[in-house]
């Protein structure tokens, strides 16, 4: 084997079998039962081509320091559990490739605007409380709809809020929001975007209830349109846009939205369900 071939193989294997480099991870540590105040601890982690920040944190946990606490679940950017601040920006640890940060030191700390439970884990209670306040579900009187029917909605109507349905409630927007940082009662970008998403949904008739929740001293009007929420969203949701749209609804279409009749139920059974063959003994649908 020539030297050139050996070099080629060596280059190919680098990042697969051999680490590309070693990166210093500066990790926020705080155990409220033990520590008086938070501190940063450094760990050296070998980085391969596709090592994510979550991989690196788990490497630290399994090999260097088992006391490190980190929350994660799906490892593929769907569950929204591993949100944290990586090199000063809100990101999902499982979606952030270490080499893409282009830095030999990676600083990792918990999300802003939420109480720290331990190390990188934050308490999402305030976030979800605000999410619940805006009634993030379809509200209509005829809840007892037929199981095999759907409410008629055009593709255009669906596309009006489709983008916002991608929200995974990871809390990155909530952490990045400058208003949330100063006003702890501010509903936050995620809740307000959801308020818009359900209000604009033609199947919904809960605009009045939702408007009461957002049209308050600490509601939608406290958004200064900084746009940080949209800049950090890992799913491409644009909460800043949704909030401005919600303001428009309140100013120009409030009465119309409050009186809007929700979309009707289809008079035809869904085709998909007609094809289902139920097992023997299955209750008659």
């Amino acid at each position: 084997m020539s030297e050139t071939e050996r070099m080629a193989i060596s280059t190919t294997l680098e990042g697969v079998e051999k680490p590309v480099k070693t990166v210093m991870f500066r990790v926020f540590r705080f155990n409220p039962e033990k520590d008086e105040k938070p501190y940063y601890k450094d760990y050296e982690v070998p980085i391969y081509r596709f090592t994510t920040v979550l991989d690196a944190l788990l490497y630290i946990k399994y090999n260097l320091d088992p006391t490190l606490s980190v929350r994660y679940s799906c490892r593929m950017g769907v569950c929204g559990s591993c949100g944290m601040i990586i090199n000063g920006k809100e990101r999902l640890a499982c979606k952030t490739i270490v080499l893409s940060l282009n830095s030999n030191i990676v600083t990792v700390r918990p999300l802003n605007n939420l109480p720290v439970v331990r190390d990188l884990i934050t308490d999402f209670t305030p976030f979800f409380d605000k999410h619940k306040q805006v009634k993030p579900y379809i509200i209509r009187d005829d809840v007892e709809a037929h199981y095999d029917r759907e409410f008629i909605q055009s593709m255009d109507e669906l596309m009006e809020f489709m983008m916002i349905t991608n929200c995974i409630k990871c809390g990155l927007c909530y952490s990045a929001c400058p208003t949330t940082a100063t006003d702890e009662l501010f509903l936050g970008p995620q809740a307000l975007a959801q308020a818009y998403r359900y209000t604009i949904d033609t199947r919904d008739s809960g605009a009045k209830e939702r408007f009461e929740a957002v049209d308050t001293n600490h509601g939608v009007w406290r958004c200064h349109f900084a746009g940080a929420c949209s800049a950090v969203c890992p799913k491409g949701v644009d909460p800043a846009f949704a909030i401005q749209q919600l303001k428009k609804l309140l100013l120009y279409r409030r009465k119309k939205m409050e009186k809007r009749a929700p979309a009707h139920e289809s008079n035809k059974p869904r085709e998909l369900l007609k094809k289902v063959e139920y097992p023997e003994g299955w209750p008659e649908q």
């Binding site: 006003d183 501010f186 406290r222």
Partner: peptide, 14 residues
């Protein structure tokens, strides 16, 4: 008023 409401949050202050 809007600026002051963002500085502190409690019923009395509001």
């Amino acid at each position: 008023r809007v600026i002051l409401l963002e500085l502190r949050q409690d019923g009395l202050w509001t």
